[in-house]
Design a protein around this nucleic acid. Structure first.
Lengths: 140, 140
DNA sequence: ATAAACACTACCAATATAGTAGTATTAAGA
DNA sequence: TCTTAATACTACTATATTGGTAGTGTTTAT
């Protein structure tokens, strides 16, 4: 039940972009260096982030990446959904057919509730709020 | 970020025990059959569940398993911690040393908050409450 | 033209998860 | 006391996921 490095690195990358003056693009090489992460690996993440509409890229020399929309309009639930494929803690919550006991499963109820709580928190937390690093991590 | 089958099966097994009259032990073979899961696989889970003090076993013929304490005194956070090894969504929350940027990491705050919310929910949900299948968090 | 940057595809390695096999131990009951 | 039904334990294998690399193609400022 660990969050993957995709989400971890991806969020950090977005924070980096949000922190940066958004008029000029940021090189991936620069982000990679600053975060001490493989540029090649990040280059796979940005494809997802771009297709989800969080960032836009500038190709060619002096290219790079910038946020495609204000950090106030991106929330953690969206970022996770983008990088993990979907926001789901267990398959039978979104797709009851994956298990034939879904119709009457006490344990499923617990998982559905947990996922709901997680989603609520993440939807309420914007990239901007994360970036500003509130010393109290505002629980729901 | 999926919950593992260990936790899923483990929770279902505990519910089975909680549903059962706790004076006589339940065979693992019976639980496995009822849940249509490999008995061998369950036999590994019960070792963890027993060492965490949730269940007790009766060896020999007519043996089996029963709850070691009331279902009201076991909560979901404990069950997850038992079966996943620990209740942790990301390593740097409980152990900042795993990452050298922990001291000032905006993204870490977000994960700490998420984990806190998850833990809060799970600690508040007892096995008994799960078993009783509250109509609360139930969309199918 | 050249070099700097992203875009894309394919692959490999490491780890974690899921599941199996087989043996040892315990205890009820004939 | 022998047999049988059950848990206890150790070791192994298979599969899936994750993390990461390699290499080539494309775009564009200079």
């Amino acid at each position: 039940m660990k969050i993957s490095t995709r989400s971890r690195y991806g969020l950090r990358l977005l924070i980096e972009l949000a922190d940066h003056d958004n008029t000029a693009p940021l090189f991936l090489s620069e982000i990679a260096k600053k975060q001490q992460v493989s540029e090649k690996y990040l280059s796979k993440l940005v494809i997802s982030l771009r297709s989800c509409g969080f960032i836009k890229s500038v190709r060619g020399a002096h290219g790079g990446y910038l946020l495609a929309k204000p950090a106030t309009e991106i929330n953690l639930a969206q970022i996770i959904a983008c990088l993990e494929g979907e926001f789901s803690f267990i398959d039978c919550t979104s797709c009851p057919e994956t298990c034939d006991r879904s119709h009457d499963c006490a344990s499923r109820m617990a998982w559905v509730g947990l996922e709901k709580v997680m989603k609520g928190y993440c939807e309420g937390l914007t990239l901007e709020a994360i970036r500003l690093n509130p010393d109290a991590p505002l629980p729901l």
